[in-house]
Amino acid sequence: MFECRLPKAEVLKKTMDALKDLIKEAVWDVSAQGLSLQSMDSSHVSLVQVTLRTEGFDTFRCDKNIALGVNMDTMQKLMKCASNDDNITLKSEDNGDLLSLIFESPNGEKTSEYEMKLMDLDIEQLGIPDQEYSCTIKMPSGEFQRICRDLSNIGESVNITVVKGGVDFSAKGDIGNAKIHVTESSNVDNEKDAVTVEVNEPVNLTFALRYLNFFTKATPLSGQVSLSISPDVPLVVAYEIEDLGHVKYFLAPKIEN
């Protein structure tokens, strides 16, 4: 038996919004540690990894590890039936083929129960190595979203150059070129507005904006985003979900032939 309850459906609605354009089907792995999901996009260019830790739930019961195969579109549609303030309970039997989603209004006067058919999915799991990165940039998530969106008007790729104290995002295309320079904040009252740039060694890498724009669908989950970059390895774009976990995206770089 698996059953968990979150005080606000909003966070799970936002999590589904962050995933559904990138992946069509996925498996939620349920264990005593919480819920987790890992999936590549269909082109095998990027990977998304989600962790929602047990401690962030109101209640969490998992008698036995289970895998819930879901169609992301369907789950997102059903999640949309919840109001942001509703509390939400997810429930499934150990060998069941249904996931129950129960939404309860804050005043307890309305309870909605939806049952979603689960899928038997065989999704390849990749080992994500723990590693140190040459550069880590933290910046307001809305600012990163804006940069990716704006540069998409110019080209298909963004070149990210990180040096001490700042980062350049640049794009080239048939209509012209663009360069956006973001400087590390010197003094910030509100942590969410801060830009921090940690540089062990300067890096310069190119990534497809199409995928970065998919990743920025996670913007409503967190005021800040972190970008971890090292030469010739996937970029990590991470959004922390306060008190609950994170959504991390990994994007393979574009490299000279």
């Binding site: 590549m40 095998h44 260019v45 990027s46 990977l47 390849e124 799991q125 990749l126 080992g127 994500i128 190595p129 790729s157 190119t206 497809a208 390895v233 996937p234 990994f250 994007l251 393979a252 770089p253 574009k254 490299i255 000279e256 032939n257």
Partner: peptide, 14 residues
Amino acid sequence: EKKQKSILSFFNKT
């Protein structure tokens, strides 16, 4: 011209 690498070039299947 830069070529898009696959994520599978970096992470192994488990």
